[in-house]
């Protein structure tokens, strides 16, 4: 049943976000601490143990892979609802800050990624 896959995805997402909120209030900050990361761990755990022991089944699996594939259209919708005017209206300083941070951060990606190879 396709709903089993969606429900499993839902359980993982909700549980992850719950623990994220819990961690946030533990640290005393009003933010979700790694909720999505925890949810992803849960889903990876279930998908690997389901494959070996229970077999979630091809049809149920589609309930998860559908949402994984609809991810890019969701990102396009997310881009379409950004406050682009607000970003450009922040003036030269906001633009400069963004440009400097993004370009320097990009330069560090290959450096940190190659740390262990040396």
């Amino acid at each position: 049943m396709v709903i089993y896959g969606i429900a499993l995805l839902g359980i993982c997402t909700l549980a992850g976000l719950f623990f994220g909120e819990l961690l946030g209030s533990l640290f005393g900050i009003n933010a979700n601490v790694g909720g999505i990361g925890i949810a992803m761990f849960l889903l990876m755990y279930f998908s690997s143990s389901l494959n070996t022991r229970f077999k979630i089944g091809d049809v149920s699996e589609k309930g998860i892979t559908f949402w994984s594939m609809i991810y890019i259209p969701i990102v396009v919708a997310m881009a379409a609802k950004q406050n682009v005017v607000g970003a450009l209206d922040g003036g030269l300083m906001a633009l400069m800050a963004g440009i400097v941070v993004v370009s320097v951060s990009f330069m560090f990606i290959p450096i940190i990624s190659n740390f262990k190879k040396r």
Binding site: L9, G10, C12, T13, G16, L17, G35, I36, A39, M40, F41, L43, M44, S47, S48, E61, I64, T65, F66, W67, S68, I70, Y71, P73, I74, V75, V76, A77, M78, A79, A80, K81
Partner: peptide, 24 residues
């Protein structure tokens, strides 16, 4: 509706779904 489709609820749901098949 673009606000709903691109909102954080469905975005988070879809991001979690991408973990399906990722390797520990």
């Amino acid at each position: 509706g673009v606000g709903i489709l691109g909102g954080s609820m469905l975005r988070d749901f879809a991001i979690v779904a991408t973990a399906y098949g990722a390797k520990f």
